Simulated assay, not measured.
Amino acid sequence: MCNRYEQAATEAARRALRVLEIEMFNSAGSIIHPQGQGEIVRMIDGKRTISQMTWGFPLIMAAVRKRANEQGKHPRPKPVNNARTDKLSSPFWRRWTGPEYRCIIPVKRYAEAYGPKGSMKEAWVSIPDQQLMAVAGLLRPSNEWGNCYTMVMTDAAGDAAKAHSRMPVILAQDNVEAWLNEPMEHAAHLCRPWTGSVEIDWTNHLWAG
């Protein structure tokens, strides 16, 4: 599952995704980690708009909440940064799948860990000759982190399966409009493996975290 990615440049996302508005936000680093600040494209008043949000839905497990209450502390949520396509109809995810909660994550490349446990390294997956991938995402408001988003994942196919058994849902440009605006019964059909070519950079950089 994807636990870090490099976001596409804002201007590249604006052009490729036909964005009309860009909200004001502080620039962040290009490598996004869970609970970091990343850029997404969503619909606001009928216009595709770039916003900045926290990557990951906050989740507090019942046992964590109970232990924190017993200790007189505030429970710390963990970021749920991936949403599996086969779980989107579950009670946890279903409430956040309407068009108003869908977004596009402009991803330049995403990372997976490979190699033996204890000395795993980074493998970066990208699409050759493309400035970005239009990755399907969900967003929601939260009390803990404000507006936040998560990345929709599906089974990996082709060369992408060499890096991990799952991969982000990468949308063809013709399907971006449907993901942002169609009812979920139609948009759900877009949550399928990417069948186009991918490029994998098997680096020697140690996987940290």
Rank of each mutant, 00 (worst) to 15 (best):
S30H: 13
S89L: 14
A68G: 09
K78I: 15
S142R: 08
R76L: 13
G56T: 09
D45W: 02
D155C: 01
T97E: 00
V135C: 12
G137C: 07
R48P: 05
Y149P: 04
L88H: 06
M151G: 00
G38W: 03
E112H: 11
G38V: 05
C103Q: 04
G115P: 05
A134E: 02
S51L: 13
A68D: 08
S30N: 13
Q71P: 00
P75K: 10
I105D: 03
V107M: 05
W55C: 12
E122L: 07
E100C: 05
N147I: 11
R67L: 08
I60T: 15
S142C: 07
A123C: 12
T49F: 03
R84W: 08
H74R: 15
V41P: 08
M53C: 13
K108V: 00
N81I: 15
G115S: 04
P75C: 13
M151K: 01
P99L: 03
T85W: 10
Q130F: 02
V64G: 00
A134R: 02
L59D: 12
R76H: 10
W93Q: 00
T54H: 14
P79R: 11
V64C: 02
S51Y: 07
P128F: 07
R140N: 09
I32E: 03
A62V: 10
P91N: 12
K78W: 13
S30R: 15
C103N: 07
R95F: 01
S89V: 05
H33G: 05
R65M: 06
N81D: 10
R94Y: 09
T54L: 07
V107R: 02
S27A: 14
V152K: 02
M153D: 01
M120F: 02
K66M: 01
R84P: 04
S51W: 09
I44M: 08
A62T: 11
A83R: 01
S142T: 11
E144N: 14
R65T: 08
I127R: 09
V135P: 06
A68P: 07
Y149V: 01
G38T: 12
W145M: 10
P79E: 11
V80W: 09
G72F: 12
V80G: 09
L132M: 15
T154Q: 06
Q37S: 15
K87E: 15
S51V: 13
I44T: 12
L59W: 12
M133V: 01
I44Q: 13
P106E: 09
P79C: 12
I105W: 04
A83W: 01
Q37M: 14
S142N: 08
M43Q: 10
P75Y: 14
G36Y: 01
V135I: 14
W124V: 01
W55Q: 11
L138E: 03
K121W: 00
E112L: 08
